[in-house]
């Protein structure tokens, strides 16, 4: 207990926990829209596509500042998204195929560039590796500030265009028939999701970022039938697993933070899928059994409750 309180007082812990919480919150909100738009894979695609941007920024500017590298990640992430959207819009290739295509090209390019960087004499590329596997311990106060600013902008946009995003996500044709520009809405929402993904790269890395985007939303969907509750719950799940994951990794030696966070959110997903009332697997089983029993006892009288 005392170690736990000492931990809470620890400055590094506070920084990392705050950063992870912010990351969880932001990806929880944006992930809800990604999941509802059936674009769960976007997280995977964009985070992988960010790699060449990170390495390129390093090669061109010779600088390992987080802001610079994240800027590179953002540019190549946006570029990849733009390619995906254009391919879907202008050809008959479906979203998932377009994504896989763009993602593998970008990630391949990133790996090639990474090998090239390794060959440059006395360039230690440890600073770049943190974007692949994520290193929450490297979070600095400046990084937190950056996350907080980006997060506030994203949240403000979501609140402002809540009605439009909801309409567009549910029925984009109808949105267009009402005179809303679905092209703009699609670009805006996609770019916001990309920003959320890029923000998380440093903490959980390219490989686990897609889990951070999807899991809170999938878990939240199990508990509610209202969009705003889903988004709220999703952000809470994300933030909570950020904090809990960070705490776990500080108390257990050699447990890296990113994976700890992902294990934590995955646990929430499992519990939600199993136990949530209404949509949970157990509840469905229980309901079926109860109905069967009622049916047997009351002999299929017309008043058998249909839950």
């Amino acid at each position: 207990m005392t170690t736990f309180i000492a931990l809470l007082r620890d400055y590094t812990f506070q920084t990392v926990a705050l950063g992870s919480a912010l990351l969880g919150l932001i990806s929880g909100v944006m992930g809800s829209f990604a999941v509802l738009r059936k674009q769960s894979l976007l997280g995977d695609g964009v985070s992988h596509s960010a790699l060449p941007g990170v390495v390129m920024a390093f090669i061109l500017l010779g600088n390992k500042n987080t802001e610079i590298l994240l800027l590179g990640a953002l540019v190549s992430g946006l570029l990849a998204t733009f390619f995906i959207i254009s391919i879907v819009r202008n050809s008959r290739v479906k979203f998932d195929s377009a994504l896989a295509l763009v993602m593998s090209v970008f990630f391949g390019l990133g790996l090639v560039l990474l090998t090239y960087v390794q060959k440059i004499p006395n360039s230690n590329q440890a600073g770049l590796n943190r974007f692949i596997f994520g290193q929450a311990a490297t979070l600095l106060k400046r990084d937190i500030m950056l996350m907080a600013i980006c997060g506030s902008v994203l949240l403000a946009l979501i609140l402002l265009f809540w009605k439009e995003f909801k309409l567009f996500t549910f029925d984009s044709d109808f949105a267009q028939s009402l005179g809303f520009s679905t092209k703009k809405l699609n670009l805006m929402l996609s770019f916001m999701i990309v920003v959320a993904i890029i923000i998380g790269l440093q903490t959980v890395g390219v490989i686990l970022m897609s889990a951070m985007l999807i899991s809170p939303a999938v878990a939240a969907r199990q508990w509610t039938n209202k969009l705003w509750v889903m988004v709220l719950l999703s952000s809470i799940f994300g933030a909570a697993s950020g904090v809990v994951g960070t705490a776990a990794s500080s108390m257990v030696s050699k447990l890296p933070t990113g994976p700890a966070i992902v294990v934590c959110i995955s646990t929430i997903v499992m519990v939600s899928v199993l136990f949530a009332p209404g949509r949970g697997i157990l509840h469905r089983l229980y309901r079926r059994k109860r109905n069967k029993l009622l049916f047997k006892m009351e002999g299929g009288a017309p008043n058998v409750p249909s839950a």
């Binding site: 549910f170 029925d171 044709d173 109808f174 969907r221 039938n225 209202k226 969009l227 509750v229």
Partner: peptide, 13 residues
């Protein structure tokens, strides 16, 4: 629209 054109599992009333 044709009612099949949207996903009716969307969280809305």
């Amino acid at each position: 629209p044709q009612s099949g054109s949207v996903d009716w599992d969307f969280p809305a009333t």
